[in-house]
Design a binder for these strands. Structure first.
Lengths: 209, 209
DNA sequence: CAGTGTGAAGAGGTTCACAGCG
DNA sequence: CGCTGTGAACCTCTTCACACTG
């Protein structure tokens, strides 16, 4: 619990650090250093030390960082020392991929319910879920402790669905719809649009084929 | 063609501007202002004007921006005034979702070939593609003009596949594998890891329920 | 006179460099 | 003696505020 506010860009790097630490653990490593992490992740060692220093002193001078300990600390900072329930909206191909993805659980998340608006899909199963009617979204979620949504619907309905999600108490949205969502303050959005990510790289590609 | 180098963070916002302009066109709008774009996207109008000013003068004082003209300029800047061929590696659920996604084409991309390493999948079809043997990746791509890859394989093989992609002349990788890739300079990577994006938001969520 | 384009000022983020500790 | 943690310096990015123009 830092007394100074932590830059969001720093918060954004912590999950990447945690992911690397988890991989190192699987490789049997127990100790690492800011330099080793930096080389592996393409950051500088000073940046990693500075980032961590916002939250406490997790290393030992002359020695480095204990990987299980630092992992635990990062999980605590990111509030991953629990499982967050997640609602998935949209049961298309992308929704199916997300619903079937094995790997959310071990990283702190569990999809608990899936909605779609297509009458032909409602009642059908998607992986281990039965697809629910989106008109039940607000009442269903309001009684739950779910605060996180994954939005995998077409862009044209994304804002309308977002309104319902917010009304239902959702506070964090992972938005796969290729549009910018408008949300009240206190609601957080992360956007994943493959075309946007690709277009960010074409700028740097050379002209000739 | 700016004489000063453009900050990457500015380049990263251009696709978002372009996406909004495209949506405005579909809404029948022809003129906009930095203020209108800013409100819609959650930026400041000064930032939008400053970002665009790196590349030229696209607006009319007192009037604003002509949407078709600005869109065309952005497409040119981002080298989207052509279709980029893309290779997809990984024919799992996510690969299927990407292969079936209608919407790359209109934003400048076209998946041209799909690889997987699973012998049970090679030769099978995935949407309009026949899945190719990943051992043919290097020779197949080397003769093509494909410079962009989408990587939808498990983390444990992502680095090995990346080596092959680079060897095959790939210069931009959209990485869905939950691991940090190491690439030579001149190769660009964008990472999409839903857990990382979610974990970035849990930091801000309140403790209680 | 509305709205762009832009130097200048202000914030914010990164890197340096080294004291200090195990 | 190696590596962390951290003020200070540096650099980058954002915002301000206004001259300018259609």
């Amino acid at each position: 619990m830092p007394s100074h506010p932590v830059p969001d860009i720093v918060v954004g790097r912590l999950p990447v650090y945690l992911r690397a630490l988890t991989a190192m653990t699987q490789e049997g490593k127990v100790i690492t250093s800011s330099q080793e992490l930096a080389t592996r992740l393409g950051f500088t060692s000073a940046q990693i030390r500075k980032d961590l220093s916002h939250f406490g002193e997790f290393g030992k001078q002359g020695l480095g960082y204990n990987i299980p300990f630092l992992s635990e600390q990062l999980r605590h900072i990111l509030k991953l020392d629990r499982i967050w329930g997640v609602v998935l909206v949209g049961a298309g191909d992308l929704g199916r991929a997300l619903a079937n993805f094995q790997g959310f659980q071990e990283r702190g998340f569990e999809i608990r319910i899936v909605f779609d608006s297509n009458p032909a899909k409602i009642g059908q199963s998607l992986g281990r879920f039965v697809i629910q009617d989106i008109d039940q979204l607000v009442p269903s979620l309001h009684e739950s402790d779910i605060r996180i949504a994954m939005l995998a619907v077409p862009a044209r309905v994304a804002q309308e669905v977002t309104g319902r999600l917010v009304e239902a108490g959702i506070r964090a949205i992972l938005n796969y719809a290729p549009t910018t969502l408008s949300v009240p303050s206190g609601v957080f959005v992360q956007n994943i649009d493959p075309a946007v990510h690709l277009q960010r790289m074409t700028y740097y590609l050379l002209e000739h084929d």
